[in-house]
């Protein structure tokens, strides 16, 4: 399977969803990197300063640094299920959902869209948790 879908990030490949690969390829035709979990781990905690006294933002702001723990939405306080597939097997099983949230969360946290490589790193890291 890996060789037939080289452009699918590792996290989703190992989720073993065959039909997902097609959706994935459509959603992320630019994702060509296998993803580096260590780079993803560093990017997960990287803080992005905000103007006007707004606290710096990172993925930790809502998801916590320990992915096995539930998070909390920084603004609304709503609890967020753990990100780690080891405790929350539904994570990274729906490519459209993953693409949607990476789009939103990158824009909100980094102030711009993530590159395909950055997305692949995030997913590779989450997948190891």
């Amino acid at each position: 399977m890996n060789h037939t879908h080289p452009d699918v990030p590792i996290g989703l490949r190992s989720a073993g969803l065959h039909c997902a690969c097609l959706l994935m390829a459509a959603a992320w035709s630019t994702a060509v990197h296998a993803g580096d979990p260590a780079a993803g781990a560093r990017a997960w905690v990287r803080e992005y300063p905000q103007p006007g006294g707004v606290p710096a933002r990172s993925c930790v702001t809502c998801h916590t640094a320990d992915l096995a723990q539930p998070g909390r939405h920084a603004k609304t306080g709503k609890s967020i299920e753990p990100m780690a597939p080891s405790v929350n097997p539904e994570r990274l099983t729906d490519p459209a959902k993953v693409a949607k949230w990476l789009g939103r969360n990158c824009r909100w946290t980094l102030g711009r869209a993530c590159t395909a490589a950055e997305k692949a790193d995030f997913l590779a890291y989450i997948e190891t948790q």
Partner: peptide, 9 residues
């Protein structure tokens, strides 16, 4: 969206 990103297809 009230300071958040709630964009949809």
């Amino acid at each position: 969206h009230y300071g958040d990103d709630a964009s949809l297809s």
